[in-house]
Amino acid sequence: MNDDLDKIDRAILAALQTDGRMSNARLAETVGLSETPCARRLKRLENDGYIERYRAVLSRSALGLGVVAFVYVRFAVHDRAVAMRFEREILAIPRILSCHNVSGSADYVLQVVARDLDDYGTFMRDQLRSLPGVTSVESSLSLREIKANGGLPLP
């Protein structure tokens, strides 16, 4: 943790992780500041890169995306150019929520959403397995989400 953050900065960040649409007045009240100093601190936190962006968290169920899968992707040949092509193509697929290059038996772990199992199967067959470098995939389907979008820890 950066030593430039004091207790109030951390409180601002924690409050905004809970509610990113919180008004400056409510944020100031929450952290025990008046509005002007709170707004200045918030602007500094944004400018210093502690706050990357604001966004809405959408409901998967309301959007009809009932399947969440964690997909372990393996490459047979580890060629940098192929990996870069794979990563570029992954970025363009909206149903892939996250992609991590990992250590261990897989090369990448993806979090994927789909309407149902048929939709997921079609995605696997028509898109994922045809991506550059992919030689095998293994899926783990989420049975129940316990925690999501938890926010970063702020000691």
Rank of each mutant, 00 (worst) to 15 (best):
H78P: 00
L5A: 06
V134P: 01
A62S: 08
A92M: 05
V113D: 00
F86H: 08
R85P: 01
L154Y: 07
P155D: 12
L65E: 06
D118R: 10
S59A: 03
H78R: 13
A76F: 13
P37Q: 11
D107L: 01
L117P: 01
N2P: 03
E89Q: 15
V68A: 07
S34F: 09
P153I: 09
L5Y: 05
T30C: 09
L45I: 10
R80Y: 10
L131E: 05
N24L: 12
L58Q: 07
G104H: 04
R129C: 12
M84D: 15
E87M: 09
N24S: 12
S136K: 14
G32E: 08
S105D: 12
S139M: 02
I51N: 03
D119N: 11
R53N: 12
F123M: 03
G49N: 02
N47T: 06
E46L: 09
E138P: 01
D116K: 06
A81V: 13
E138S: 14
D48H: 10
M22I: 15
D48S: 14
M1Y: 07
S139K: 03
M124Q: 12
D19H: 08
R80W: 09
L27P: 02
Q17E: 14
S140D: 10
R26H: 15
R55H: 10
R88H: 12
P94F: 01
R129Y: 03
E89N: 10
V137R: 02
G20A: 15
D107S: 07
V77A: 14
S130N: 15
Y108V: 01
A83L: 09
N24A: 14
Q111A: 11
V82E: 05
G133V: 05
D4W: 05
L63Q: 10
D118M: 04
V112L: 00
H100S: 11
P155T: 10
C99Q: 03
L45Q: 06
Y108T: 03
N47E: 15
S103Q: 07
D3C: 01
C99N: 10
S59L: 02
K43N: 13
G20D: 04
S142T: 15
T36K: 15
V71G: 00
R95Q: 12
A11V: 06
S139W: 01
A76C: 08
V137D: 09
P94I: 00
L97N: 04
M84C: 05
